[in-house]
Design a protein around this nucleic acid. Structure first.
Lengths: 167, 167
DNA sequence: TGGGAAATGATGGGGGTCAATGGGATTTGA
DNA sequence: TCAAATCCCATTGACCCCCATCATTTCCCA
């Protein structure tokens, strides 16, 4: 259930692109056989996630005051602009023209894992950004505090079942 | 059971418009084969939802003080002005003239998913508003606090059956 | 350890199917 | 009796299913 690594695939003449096998494997327990994509707020990229992650977003928005301006804006920019894209028999999706244009994608697509979610880029745009981000991280001497094992969700630990309610 | 994405359909000369297949699919477990629409009280748009969501609104109104002005107003604007619209054989509804006029809809209708509910817009009005909403989100640096996985309804989690009564 | 065979994932393309739409015919209800 | 709603069928074009090919990795066995 983790998206990792960068996978570059071809966008064919019909606007189709194969979802990396690794990503599909991470999604195989999902009730919907496909992915969700929406335009990133800050990057020239597309945000990708699973159906259950989208349910999580919807449920979280539900909790904000139903009529708050902030919830409204988020609903429009995430839920309203997201595309539900089913696989074909070969595990490909059709990239909508609107999203191709937004991310300035040409003939190749980079799938970049980000843990629970992932991003789609034009590889030529992503590569220099990745370099920059790498040097920033080095210069800053950034370290990541890891959560202790026993605070992780059960499914994320080896030897534990995936269900919280398993008896 | 999630409304996502923006779907633009034509309003024909008879005042009919196709409900997007994806939305119909999200509603297929409903006892009523159709949708509910009512005028939004803050946007130039129509609010849409399922029969069961309308029940939820009614139940929430019940909890407000029965004779408060607020409950009165909400009851009038939501329940009083809502239209119950059944599909025809092809999955279309007839948009009442009153609602067409209110939302200033011309020859096209945008169905915009908002999770548990959706909105209907004149696409020419919605588009610039969505852009504005995206910019506000970016400037505000808004992030959404996601609910923990284990507080979600079971069907929304991968690997869990869709029914609560699974034994 | 190397080479070849087999399996698997990625890519390309044809054609059938179904959702969206338009319009006529029939029924319903005021 | 008229208008409006529902049913029915026709058209069309986008999407999805299927298969064929190619590339890569894995596996097996000499």
């Amino acid at each position: 259930m983790l998206f990792t690594g960068t996978h570059i695939h071809k966008l064919d003449r019909k606007g189709r692109v194969s979802v990396p096998k690794r990503f599909r494997a991470a999604l195989e327990m999902e009730e919907f056989a496909g992915i969700y994509l929406y335009q990133s707020h800050k990057e020239c990229a597309l945000e990708g996630c699973s159906h259950s992650h989208m349910e999580r977003i919807a449920a979280s928005l539900d909790e904000l005051d139903m009529f708050s301006d902030e919830a409204d804006d988020l609903a429009d920019t995430i839920l309203g602009s997201s595309h539900m894209l089913p696989y074909d028999g070969e595990g490909r999706i059709i990239l909508p023209a609107e999203l191709i244009e937004f991310a300035r994608i040409e003939d190749q697509v980079a799938f970049v894992g980000r843990g629970r979610t992932f991003r789609l880029w034009n590889p030529d745009i992503f590569k220099p950004l990745q370099e920059a981000s790498r040097t920033r991280t080095l210069n800053r001497g950034a370290t990541l505090k890891l959560k202790p094992m026993n605070e992780l969700p059960k499914g994320a630990r080896p030897g534990t079942p995936n269900e919280e309610d398993a008896s």
